[in-house]
Design a protein around this nucleic acid. Structure first.
Lengths: 229, 229
DNA sequence: CGGGATATTGATTGATTTCAATGTGAGTGG
DNA sequence: CCACTCACATTGAAATCAATCAATATCCCG
């Protein structure tokens, strides 16, 4: 294992992977991570990298969840994306990170040296392809999210968010939200109160049920889909 | 010149380049375009490529301006980015375009086959670097714009927009806006009325002057900068 | 020079924020 | 095992910023 960024504060011990084992981009990229990556643990709210730092590593969530974000001087925060087990992040930047990344809850992240992955990709076309696909997916998600932030109302935003998580958690009816209402609010460009009210509204419309704040039962994906515009 | 996408409706004649001749990424990428690219002309509002189409080409604005955007079923539109002379676009997507692109006014665009540029990049490290830098710049801009859309108020949004155009037009005090108020509104997630009122507000605050709708004189960049948060 | 699209300005409405109070639940220690 | 506690979430009332509806004004474009 190569030298690691100082602030990573890793425990360094291996953790059973909960990463997805399916999908077109899985094998090549996940295999590269498995080969060269070290698993690091992060406490809740621990910084994984900061905006402006040199981008020396690529990252893959093993378990837990990660948020990337930017903040204004006065503290207003915009979360750009959430990453769940199996998701790769940190490769959409140039030489320096364009945003910060934090563990949402206690999380394990596989870390691989950028230079190593890139030189592997130079010899392995499939891996190069997988890298390009993953980067393009990030760009696509960012474009989609701009549409949400610029043009959708609160109910549509929350519906879009829930459908996205639903899909990424394998369409299991019961969604486990790894993030707080504040995180969701900062992702959707709303306040926690509006998130709360909108969740309640969706429940009253029989689209979802809320056994607890972090657990959402999707009763009617179709109803959410219709709000997805 | 290779076969071109049918809908491009090109005139095909060369046009004097107004592309920027400076900046770190200039030479390699612009040279590659100059070598292999064909210049095509587009009428005002003509589609350059559509969302979902195969991404077979890379593009560079020669003169005029280009907008990329997504639309919801009911017609709400979000513009993701504007491209000015010298700017490269269309390379942030995977195999298919994640959004549509249109000429804003009558514009000339240099078009280069993706496969040709990529194979050149495989042999020319500087070009590969330039491509990566350009793609990363697109991602950075998208992240920045999410912060605008999610967390800034109308005055901050317009100030950020004007400063961005100012910088990209070489910090000349007099800005020429190539796009309509509707385009600006759809870029900033506001309405044309709010754009109008906010421009007037900035004028009353002595930050700008408005000789005409498309011409903005930046009297106090510092004042705009302070709103930039 | 005319005319239609584009932009500005005004009045009002409305969605979301802000301010405020209450509720809930996960984790801890007695 | 239960009660306590503190952070997190929900709900309510009022305020606010931007949207909407509406009426000119202006400017390109042909």
């Amino acid at each position: 294992m190569n030298k690691l960024p100082a602030k990573m504060n890793a425990t360094g011990h291996a953790v059973a992977s909960a990463a997805k084992r399916t999908g077109p981009a899985y094998s090549a990229l996940s295999e590269a991570f498995a080969l060269t990556g070290a698993v690091m643990s992060f406490e809740r709210n621990a910084e994984i990298f900061g905006e402006g730092e040199e981008a020396e590593y690529f990252y893959q969530v093993v378990n837990g969840a990660v948020r990337t974000y930017k903040v204004l001087e006065d503290g207003r925060r915009q979360i750009g994306a959430f990453y769940l087990p199996g998701d790769v992040f940190g490769l959409e930047a140039g030489d320096a990170h364009a945003f910060s990344a934090e563990a949402i809850g206690r999380s394990s992240v596989r870390v691989a040296k950028r230079s190593v992955i890139l030189s592997m990709a130079a010899r392995d076309g499939e891996l190069g392809q997988a890298l390009w696909t993953a980067a393009a997916g990030g760009m696509r998600a960012a474009q989609e999210h701009m549409l949400v932030l610029g043009r959708k109302n609160a109910e549509e935003r929350v519906a879009t968010f829930l459908l996205d998580i639903l899909r990424r958690e394998d369409n299991r009816e019961v969604i486990e939200l790894p993030m707080s209402r504040q995180d969701i609010a900062d992702y959707l460009g709303l306040t926690i109160e509006t998130i709360s009210r909108t969740m309640t509204l969706l429940e009253s419309e029989a689209a979802i049920e809320l056994p607890s704040a972090r657990r959402v039962v999707v009763r009617s994906p179709g109803r959410l889909q219709r709000l997805n515009a």
